[in-house]
């Protein structure tokens, strides 16, 4: 676990220095939110209709911006053969996975932290149940990154990794997206944490199951 934290710290230090992915992810997510707000301008002005599209728009933004970041998660290690250097360290391969998951989650949280307030303004949507929304976003993001990091490692040596990653990832994260969107819709229409317990349970189970599976198979994925 300690080595995983070192890897995450290294990834985040590099990212904070260059802001290569963070800037792209934030700009991308803001663009998507702005485009949605323009496209659905009439609907946004009607308070009943907005709750039908807003949660979907929010999660589409997170998922696509997140895919951008995940595609670089392992690809960045190819420069100077760093992935080999990492594999030569005396740690279990699963530590590398944990490090990448932590770094991926932190990056996603940054993007979400910027996106949610802008979303609230552009969709004219007062966010009352902030705590509930945060719980859903955190659980949804963990599930998304847990699977995405595994697939990022799986596709890192393919020539078409930028295309292949979302193609493989999106079907696998549908069980995260559906409860996240449903729960977000309920929270945005005034529901509390009690009203979304079913979805939260689903997300927790998904996160735990996929984390364990990914942790166990990661050794084989990085094997030459």
């Amino acid at each position: 676990m300690i080595s995983g934290l070192h890897i995450a710290a290294k990834d985040l230090r590099e990212e904070m220095r260059t802001k290569q992915m963070l800037n792209s992810m934030i700009v991308f997510s803001l663009l998507v939110i702005v485009i949605f707000s323009i496209a659905f301008e009439d609907i946004i002005s009607s308070s009943n209709m907005v709750s039908m599209i807003a949660p979907g728009a929010l999660w589409i933004t997170f998922i696509f911006a997140g895919s951008l970041g995940l595609s670089r998660s392992f690809a960045a290690e190819l420069e100077n053969g760093c992935l080999e250097g990492l594999k030569l360290c005396p740690v279990e391969r699963s530590e590398i996975y944990i490090g990448k998951v932590i770094a991926g989650i932190v990056l996603m949280f940054f993007v979400e932290l910027v996106t949610v307030p802008i979303f609230s303004v552009l969709f004219n949507y007062p966010i009352d149940g902030l705590f509930s929304l945060m719980v859903i976003i955190v659980l949804g993001t963990i599930g998304f990154v847990v699977v995405g990091t595994l697939l990022s490692a799986l596709t890192v040596n393919t020539r078409t990794r930028e295309v292949l990653l979302p193609v493989l990832l999106l079907p696998l994260v549908i069980p995260v997206i559906i409860p996240s969107v449903l729960a977000t819709a309920r929270v945005l229409t005034g529901g509390g944490i009690v009203d979304v317990l079913q979805e939260i349970r689903l997300l927790v189970v998904y996160d735990v199951v996929f984390f364990i599976v990914a942790y166990l198979v990661f050794e084989h994925i990085l094997q030459d």
Binding site: R13, E14, E79, N80, G81, G85, V91
Partner: peptide, 26 residues
């Protein structure tokens, strides 16, 4: 291991690279 690839991170300083690998070796 020393290869023709440096295994070094371009965006970290020389010192940070060594510190990272040192920590990975415990």
């Amino acid at each position: 291991v020393l290869s023709h690839d440096s295994y070094l991170y371009n965006d970290l300083t020389a010192e940070e690279n060594l510190r990272f690998f040192g920590k990975m070796y415990g």
